[in-house]
Structure formats: C-alpha cells, structure tokens
Design a protein around this nucleic acid. Sequence first.
DNA 1: TTGAAAGCGCTAACAG
DNA 2: CTGTTAGCGCTTTCAA
Lengths: 336, 336
Amino acid sequence: MQPKRSAIKIQDVAREAGVSVSTVSRVLNGKVDVAKDTQDRILTVIDELGYSSSLAARSMRSLRTNVIGLVMPDVEHPFSIEIMKGVNRAITESPFDLLVYTTGNVRKYAAANHERRFVAQLNNSITDGVIIVASANASIFLDKPVVSVDPHTIDPNYPSIYGTNYAGAMEAMEYLLELGHRRIGFIAGRPELESATQRLLGYKDALKKWGVAIDESLIANGDFSMPVSILAAKQILSLLERPSAIFAANDQSAIGVFEAARDMNLLIPEDLSVIGFDNITEANYINLTTVDQFLSEMGSKATRMLIKIINDEPLENRIHQIRTKLIVRGSCQRNN
Amino acid sequence: MQPKRSAIKIQDVAREAGVSVSTVSRVLNGKVDVAKDTQDRILTVIDELGYSSSLAARSMRSLRTNVIGLVMPDVEHPFSIEIMKGVNRAITESPFDLLVYTTGNVRKYAAANHERRFVAQLNNSITDGVIIVASANASIFLDKPVVSVDPHTIDPNYPSIYGTNYAGAMEAMEYLLELGHRRIGFIAGRPELESATQRLLGYKDALKKWGVAIDESLIANGDFSMPVSILAAKQILSLLERPSAIFAANDQSAIGVFEAARDMNLLIPEDLSVIGFDNITEANYINLTTVDQFLSEMGSKATRMLIKIINDEPLENRIHQIRTKLIVRGSCQRNN
DNA sequence: TTGAAAGCGCTAACAG
DNA sequence: CTGTTAGCGCTTTCAA
C-alpha cells in the first residue's frame, strides 16, 4: 500500500475558511463562542471538502470519544451474536457509537494475551469504555470503565453481568426428573470456567435432591465446542445402560448431542430427551428444549451499566444477574 | 467520568527498563537492530507492566495498523450478520484484526452523512482499509482502500461485491411459473436502490418471457422493511382476483407476507406460495423458499479483495458477483 | 546499538 | 470572539 497521507485535515479546513485551526475545532465540538457567520463559513467548507476529524487524533487529545468498545472472541457463534444484538439495541438508544473488536477467532492469538491486549488497545485509545464478552481475564485494571458479560470467573470487584447458571441447571434437571427420567447424562463445559462448574453443580445437586445416585460415567467432559461434544455424547450413549435424557452444558454441546444421536440412529425425542443450556436458534435444532440465558438482554444490560459508569451515575449493583428460563420446545418425552 | 490519563505508556516502559522510548518502540515494532539483552529486558518490563501501545497514537504516526474496518448500518438484522460472519471468517485466516463500526441504527443519524462520516473516521485513522455494507454513497474518495458489499448503486470505478439480482429474480419467477402460477404478486424494495430495481426488472421480464401480461396492481411498493411489507402484502392479497403466489424482494418483505397471510387466515403454501429474496434463517420462517444471496460469501470475498488491495496485489476484477441460487424449501405449491 | 528530537492531527488552556 | 501554543503517545529520521 502506498504510504499516502493526503486526507483532508483540520488545517485544510482552517486555511480554506481563513481562520485558525482552533476556531475550526471549536465549531467541530459545538462550542458556542463562535460568531454565527464564521461558523457558517466553516461548516460550509467542512461540507465542501468532505472533512471528517480523525478518530485517532481526537481520542489522543481528548478524554471523551463517545465510542463504546465491545471485545468479542468472535462474531460468528450465535452466543456472541446474541450478545452483540443486545448491545446494539442499547447503543441505538444512546449517543454512543459502537466499535466491535475481534481477531475473528479465539485461537488466533494465544488467548491469554489476546484479550488483555485488545482491551488495552481499545480502552487506552479510542473508546470511553469497553464491554468484554466471556472474559477469561478478570484482572484487567484500567482507568476507563470495563463491564464484562458472562465472565469466566466472578470477581465482585469487577462490574459484570452473568446468568443464573446454577439455578438454570437445576431447573432443567428438575424438568427431566419430573418427566420420570432417572439416568440423565451431562455434557460438561470447560472446567476452568465458572459457568461450567455452576452448571455441573446444578446437575449434581438436582440429582441429590431427588435422591438419584450420581453415576460419574454419565458425566462426559466437553469444552463447549461441538466436535468434542459429539465424542462426549457418543461415549455416554454407548453405555450399556443408556441414559434416557441428556443435559448439555451449552448450545454447541447440545448440537453435538443431536449429531451424535443422528450418527447412532437414535431418534430425538423418542429415544433420547435433550435439553441444552443457552438458546439455540439454529434452524435444524429449533425443537430443542433449552435453558435460555437471554444473552441479548445481558448485552443491553451491560451496555446500560457501562454508560452509567462512564457518566458517573450511581450503579445499584456492580454484579447483575439475568435470570435464565427453561424454554420447553417439545424435544423431551416422559420416561415410563 | 473522571478525566484520568494514567495508563501505562511507552515512557513508563522506557524508564523502567532504563532505555529511551525510541528503543522500546524499536522492540515493539520488531526492528532487528537492538541488542539481544536490551530487547529481553524491555520485553520483560512490557510484560510486567502489562503495557500495550495505544492504537490511537500508533495509527496517528504510522501508516499501517493491521486493522480492517467494517462499516455496517446495524448489527442486528440477519442480512448484516451474515455478511459479518463472512468477513470474520476471512479475517481469521489473515493477520488483520477486525473493527466493526456502527451507530446501532440506520436512522440514528441522517443516513446521508452517517456513512461517509464513519468511513472517514475509520479510514483516516485507525484502519488500513474498510468494507462498507449496503453503501448508499458511492462517491467516497479516500486514500485508503474501500470495498463495498451489495452497494446501492453500482459504480464500476469502485471495488465492490454484489449478487445477481436480476438473474435471481428471474429464477425465482420461472420456478413459480413452471409450477403453474400466473397471478404472481411482487413486494418491491426501495426504488432508489440498484438491487431493488434489478429484482423488479427480473420479475417483469420473467412474466414477459412467459407471455403473462403485467398487472400493475400485483406490484406493491415496499421498502425492504417488514412493517411496510405487511401492508403491501395485505393490499395485494385483498385484490378481487387474489394472486396464487408472491415474490418478495427481500427477507423482511417475505416475512411481511407471512405475517399478512397469517392475519388474513390464509395458509402457506396451500393458499399462497411465497418466495423471498435473501436467505431467511429465522426459525419461524424456515420453510420459506428463497433466492439465496450467499451473503457470508460476499463478506469473505470482499475481505479478501480488500486485503489484496492493501497489499498492493493485483485484482482480477474490481467488481465481483456472487451468484444467487434458488433454495426450494417446500413452501411453494403447484397451481392447477 | 542507542538517544534526541521532530512531528502525526487534534483539543484546550491562555492571551488578546 | 479568535489566534497562539503546548502537548496527547507514538514512530522515525538523524546523530552520536
């Protein structure tokens, strides 16, 4: 790429309008102490030249940019997209613009540095604050506000939004138990994540509450990804005493169960009832019963929280929970 | 928000490592002319301090940022999201990061300035080039490369990706005509947009080709939005001689037809066959037959094109078409 | 191999 | 009401 640097700048506008750069800057920033006709002239020139101020320069100099950053692991999975929709909605009702930052893939850089690097990049420069989705790293300390959505570990010092993972898992399990299921498989998530351990705990506690012994062979290790979940599901479904239901720790895992069942010629829900955490809207799996996390609501809530912090308004709670809800879509059947 | 400005900067690193800022900068940018142990020391300090350079400052000074911008009218509609997914995929395979910029709503600012302002903001500062989705404004002239996806008007001087609007509409119509439909309604799009006029032309030409007289009362004005399309569909469906099929100019229009039909107690596809342009993956409308635009493919292609331009690699064509395809999902029925 | 110094485009005092 | 000026954090000559 040719190193050009010929874009129109504030100096060009100033020269053309026969004023100083500071006067142009004043007009740009809506200061009132500018003569009406000077202002008009400058505005005209700005329009003629098609001038637009450089975000980089502006944010370097001033502290407020009116831009909110959203750092996401990717922008492809329904999980991320749902959250982004919610953020977008809240942004629409605010004077802020939205800047979404991603490498396109969680694994593109070492995930460790990756996130911190991003947040720092955005926050130290062009945004007034950022929202981090599924943050691996709670120990980010910055001057500008950060709110995290569904953080991997919960740190009460750190403003965040998360779902009721434990309660949601309980609810899903109790639904299956009420339907008469007793052998219920579980596809676990990444054990280092808070959400995953809470869901596992909910699974176990529900069984305990109903006096069902926990069979460790019914708990398969997953990692919230589909490919691994397919293997996990196949493992469980190959047991001599096959479970009549499976509770999957997230949407991708649930889809994995579907795929595994298909491969093994098992019918859903006739042979196997399935519930997944997170709401799955993908066309092929529309009938799946789910524990809805209301991800988009989490996104909007996070955005509104962040805006309050930016504006120095008081916050009721630094930690906010969005209640999960079981959405029954008829992929579960009564067992005996 | 308290105006703090205390984030760690290159100076802090320099002081801590006992070197000058320029040396740190050299290490940061991977220059080779730095003594091994100096470099190690600096790297260690950078790590300890958790330093990350300011995007704003960096991009202000240097010409290459390794960031690609994506300017979108919103990030909520499936249309935008599909394109973004494609862009994301291409980004993953590249050394670039992605910055998505949106106000959250097409109508938040006057659409006219809105887009140009964004492109300028991104391009004059923090990105190496931008992709514009559904650009209203072809006359953006900048130094840094711009590629547009599905531009509203086609300008051969301007690198862009678009679909085969005319051919796609023809194909949809011929499918309906082959099924025996003769009274076919059309929900039009915004007449100022190239895509809309091409689709309308395809509709008309298909009828001509089959020797069916064009009945203007079967063509309703829409604007690619659902609410207006509902009204448009109701108008057509209230005609004394009701059409047996409707071809809708985009996904939102098609959904509008569904909603209108539901309100009027018409069954789809028994009473009415429906085809929509754009691929609709929304759960309730999954059975809709569509002309798929392969939006995500448009996104990836645009990204790859932009990267080539940034890298000064030759381009085969400045204008690239992604061929549409009719996806039959059984919401159409034979007529007589 | 390193440091000093000059800006990148802009905003915000401070003068006038 | 307007202009002058001093940086924001960084990269990049140019010297040492």
